[in-house]
Write a protein that binds this DNA or RNA. Structure first.
Lengths: 237, 237
DNA sequence: CCCAAGGTTCGGCGCACACCGAAACGTCCG
DNA sequence: CGGACGTTTCGGTGTGCGCCGAACCTTGGG
């Protein structure tokens, strides 16, 4: 008679429940750098006991958000796939009316501003760097944002010329918009975003700073971005 | 010294916490029909006391997911905006490894299959109907899915010819992919998806069934979809 | 072989919160 | 004005779960 509740409600609540704990949310945000962390690293990062971490990781793995890999006495975890990463990104972008009130120390201030300049979002570029690249691609007619979010045929050729052929694997879209939580604007994600980020790291266009997600554009990277995309050198220092 | 936790973690957890309760999740899924429900309707729908419902609605409104409108002794609530709707859609699409085990009664089975045939997703078409329209648009070169998800110039003109000019308002994209939870495939959302759904209802192409999200294609709708998009009549009965 | 270190399991503690019923508060209508 | 109805507020109850420390297991190294 009474439909009681919607069938999917329990599943939705269970999934959301995985993200509804501050410690687990902190894990997922840390893992947005796309790399694998050990359980101990995450425990120290979050400031909770190892036993607590172990239980949290168990839930996240069981829920399909994390993939784990055991190596000797280490338990490495990373985001399960691009879908899981997208979920965390989307939720994080929606959540904070811009979070951090003010950085405490100068060191943290430096780290924060480095993160704003450039960072990775799971497997693609974000921050001002990500926005600059996305805008440049759009300005050159390689990416179309006015009617949605898709590469143009010229854009496909551009990636080919870069030596990074794009192939669709599974259901992951070639191009997808990811909302930036510092710039509040969309930047390039999806297969193309991942390929570009990987190329940028392999070709030495940028290097990681510290142990987290921050990126720094190298001199060589500045020249490459200037030549290939017309981004003025020095914009991203 | 120890970074304790990521700044956005608390905000993320708080937002996810709103969706992490089965009753609240049921409310949000019901509200995905895009219309306004009264508190009492939601209470009966979920099978909880009115007082409980009142508290839940207070949290959802405070969290920015719902907008409320008071009329006399009624409290109407609806999804706050397209962003909130997208969040629920995304999460719901990710959550269930296909939910409903098997429908209980024939009546429920009928309702379930009606939902699979056609329904609304907040403000756009979903179910087999949504997929069929999206596929037809893609096949005619009006929508591009191979390199992302965007209307083509022909697609823009097609909407104009339909008498539904598309204008970008705010940050909402003209076209966006929304993952269908019955078909497990993307369908058209965003400004264009909303405009098309509104036009379909106003022009009598389809009508709502019952009090929820299910849609039925009319004879006139079948003819229109056949003429305009080449969808064979009878496909969606 | 034994010891150090990373990880897990187990009890137990305490808080947060979903739920209800009863009572109070409006609003609408006869 | 009084009664019906939708909604809210308020105690009170129960439970789920995040947390810890201690004990235990496994791996790797001296």
């Amino acid at each position: 008679m009474s439909p009681r509740t919607h069938p999917g409600a329990a599943a939705l609540a269970a999934l959301a429940g995985l993200l509804a704990d501050e410690t687990r949310a902190g894990f997922l945000l840390a893992l947005l750098d796309g790399r694998a962390w050990t359980a101990g690293e995450l425990a120290r990062h979050a400031g909770v006991a190892a036993s607590t971490t172990s239980e949290h990781l168990g839930k996240l793995v069981a829920g399909g958000l994390l993939a784990e890999e055991r190596q000797g006495r280490h338990r490495y975890v990373r985001l399960a796939d691009a879908r899981a990463a997208q979920l965390v990104e989307d939720l994080a972008a929606q959540a904070p009316p811009t979070a951090a009130p003010r950085p405490r120390t100068l060191g943290e201030a430096g780290a924060g501003s480095a993160m704003a300049r450039g960072r990775t979002c799971y497997d693609h570029l974000a921050g001002r760097l990500g926005i600059a690249v996305t805008d440049a691609l759009t300005g050159l007619g390689l990416l179309r944002q006015d009617t949605g979010f898709a590469l143009t045929d010229d854009g496909l050729r551009w990636f080919g010329g870069l030596g990074v052929p794009l192939v669709r694997t599974g259901r992951r879209p070639l191009a997808r918009a990811c909302l930036d939580w510092t710039e509040r604007r969309p930047h390039l994600a999806g297969v193309a975003g991942a390929a570009l980020c990987r190329h940028a790291l392999e070709a030495g266009w940028c290097v990681r700073i510290g142990s987290e997600r921050a990126l720094k554009v190298t001199d060589r990277g500045g020249r490459a971005l200037s030549e290939l995309l017309g981004i003025p050198e020095g914009t991203l220092r």
